[in-house]
Design a protein around this nucleic acid. Structure first.
Lengths: 243, 243
DNA sequence: CGGCCGGTTGAGTACAATCAATTCTGGTGG
DNA sequence: CCACCAGAATTGATTGTACTCAACCGGCCG
């Protein structure tokens, strides 16, 4: 018998509860699963690691497992024609992916940094889901969040001007990260990937960054660290000048 | 005691089961809820009607109910700046909307045609969800589908050329409708709404239609009925010529 | 019959794509 | 530790496409 049942680990799903009552602004991303639920999922999960740049699965592969990120960043994308691709989302720790597939994966994923994740056989996930209503609610909340994100992404892409798209993207990243220090955002992905996400060429991304720096709205320490200098101006650019 | 329990009505959620095993091509949209579940939801639902063009709810309104379409078409959109908006999706019978909101609606919806729908108080939906695991699975499947659609939309918007976007949109509409007759698609929304969905101005939409007609890929009987003449060419255009 | 809204068409403009040249970065091996 | 290399990012010049603004057309409703 286990003497010390503390440090229960297992899949962790982070999201903001869409049905949360109470202070509309005090909502925050939190763990959606109880220790018990996590233990249940842990039993059917294995831990997998992916090197930076490694393919996790390809569009068209037989979908037999879902993943829950422990650490690292994953890029989800779809090939649109030879050579070109559209990044549909960047996934962070606590995110869940590979679940909403119809037997075969409908998109590809690759590790943008070194990634550690739980791998859960879909068959087993489904079995557990049927048994446990509370777990379902957590999954539903997560899906709702991903749905909102996907729609946000669509709104972003509907913006015509490159700087607006980039501003919106930075805004999104700022919210995703826990604003650890002042206002420095960490962007683990490369420019070309940002371009794929924004529907822009690397050249356009570069110029958009330059514009924002020149306007003293952001300052880029290095390729992967951006500091927001004038947040209000950033928001203004993200929302206006759309078409 | 009810002598004739047939003709049970109540909310109906249509989607393709993402976890369906079996013939990969034989999957189809079907009813996700059992009669029992539908009856359960019916108890907490009321039926509401909206005139063509009527607002269902506005971004920022207090989110107190979810809707399930019985008949008609609903447009979901977000205002992006004064006058401009982005349509995030067109919703058809069997679709569910208003569920994934955080206390206040994060987008607006309006009736594109005359609409009849079930209206379900969120509080009650949540209560039922907590009790019934099977129901959850249905909702999860539906959310997965909406998620896939939202990502498809994002991919569409990442296309640069107007004709590619339109082709992709027509392709999508064709799949949504049950291909009743030969290959005539019904487009209940107006050009400007299609434009908002595609991230194009009405002028650009018009020109894109014209191009497809001139290339003998489609033929437009009237503003709301388009016949696909050369499906392969349509798919080719949707997939290539992207950026 | 007239007004109005939505759609189409036309001319000029603005913005990002393209192509290509150059610099910068990060990782590797001497 | 540095030199080197390959890939990535930036920058520049040019081109193409869709936006803008505007005029025009057509159907629908009063």
């Amino acid at each position: 018998m286990s003497v010390n049942p503390k440090r229960i680990t297992g899949p962790a799903i982070h999201a903001v509860d869409p049905w949360m009552r109470g202070d509309p602004q005090k909502r925050a991303r939190h763990q959606l699963l109880s220790d018990d639920e996590r233990a249940q999922l842990a039993k059917i999960s294995s831990i997998v690691r992916f090197e930076k740049g490694e393919q996790i699965y390809l569009e068209g592969d037989r979908a037999d497992a879902a993943f829950n990120i422990i650490s690292g960043v994953v890029t989800a994308y779809r090939a649109v024609e030879a050579g070109a691709r559209v990044v549909t989302s960047f996934l962070y720790p606590g995110d869940l992916f590979g679940l909403s597939e119809e037997g075969i994966y409908s998109g590809s994923t690759k590790a943008t940094t070194f990634v550690v994740a739980y791998k859960m056989p879909l068959e087993a996930v489904r079995r557990v889901l049927r048994k446990n209503a509370d777990l379902d609610v957590g999954v539903i909340i997560k899906l709702c969040e991903e749905l909102r994100e996907a729609q946000h992404h669509a709104v972003l892409l509907a913006q015509k001007k490159a700087v607006s798209r980039l501003a919106r993207f930075l805004e999104l990243q700022e919210h995703l990260q826990f604003l650890s220090d002042g206002r420095t955002i960490f962007l683990p992905m490369k420019r070309s990937e940002i371009g794929d996400y924004l529907g822009l060429t690397p050249a356009a991304v570069s110029r958009a960054f330059r514009t924002l720096v020149l306007k003293k709205i952001i300052s880029d320490q290095d390729l992967h660290h951006v500091k927001i200098v004038n947040r209000n101006a950033l928001y203004r650019i993200a929302d206006s000048t759309s078409r």
